[in-house]
């Protein structure tokens, strides 16, 4: 499983982002590295290198950073690391959450980094208008892949019978349940639709408890994808 490192100028910021992302991905090693090593704001090369070792469980590490020099320190540490490291140019908070969920789903380092980068566009509505055509967190604007509104789509109406609807934890469960499936899955709520692979896009729908959403999937595993989402909802998302 891919590990994550969160590099920030601030120790508390790094720890907070790691905590937030970890809530979505209980099995992913997330190592925060913040501050200059002596209690002040800054970045510390040795600490970042050490965090990469801590986060690595053999499969490689994806590093997220806050500001410019943190990127440089991360890139230097990545070059020197004894494990494959991808430094992701992504928003820190949304990117870390998206990366953690992708890593939890067993994605590769490149896929985890792509999920983090795609978080720039998730959350914003409609998620599918995002210009980024990343395959993992995908966008329906992609010309080569038919949008899931075509004839062969598998659809199902799902009622969110849990209390919080598609809030953070249920959204993470949905995204994780779809990891590894060869399917493009949309969740529609009212006029909005979200890529079901993106926790942030799902949360961005704002679908509350009691709401009825439509799940639309295309691709070879479309039926299985819809079945999994429906099953999660039927179990009240394990609440």
């Amino acid at each position: 499983m891919i590990g994550l490192v969160v590099v920030s100028h601030s120790r508390r910021l790094a720890e907070g982002v790691a905590e937030l992302a970890g809530q979505m991905a209980p099995d992913v090693r997330i190592a925060p590295s913040g501050g200059d090593g002596s209690g002040g704001l800054g970045t510390d090369y040795a600490a970042v290198a050490e965090a990469i070792s801590r986060a690595d469980s053999g499969g490689g590490v994806v590093v997220l950073y806050d500001l410019g020099s943190a990127r440089m320190v991360a890139e230097m540490a990545a070059e020197e690391a004894g494990t494959p490291v991808v430094v992701a140019d992504a928003p820190l908070v949304e990117g870390a959450v998206a990366a953690a969920v992708a890593a939890q789903g067993g994605a590769s380092a490149d896929e985890v980094a792509a999920a983090a980068r795609a978080a720039y566009h998730a959350g914003a509505t409609p998620a599918f208008a995002a210009p980024d055509t990343d395959p993992l967190a995908g966008a329906a604007g992609d010309a080569e892949v038919p949008a899931p509104s075509t004839e062969d789509a598998v659809r199902s109406d799902v009622v969110l019978t849990n209390d919080v609807g598609l809030h953070a934890r249920p959204a993470a469960l949905v995204a994780r349940a779809l990891a590894g499936l060869d399917a493009r899955v949309l969740v529609r709520y009212g006029e909005q639709e979200a890529d079901a692979a993106s926790v942030l896009a799902l949360m961005g729908l704002g679908a509350p408890g009691g709401a009825r959403v439509e799940v639309v999937a295309t691709g070879p595993d479309a039926a299985e994808a819809v079945r999994r989402v429906s099953a999660l909802a039927a179990r009240n998302f394990d609440e």
Binding site: Y45, A46, E75
Partner: peptide, 15 residues
């Protein structure tokens, strides 16, 4: 320099 300077100058002068 890489391990002691910090900030952008550490990686830049170190490199």
């Amino acid at each position: 320099l890489i391990s002691t300077v910090g900030g952008a100058a550490g990686p830049l002068y170190g490199t």
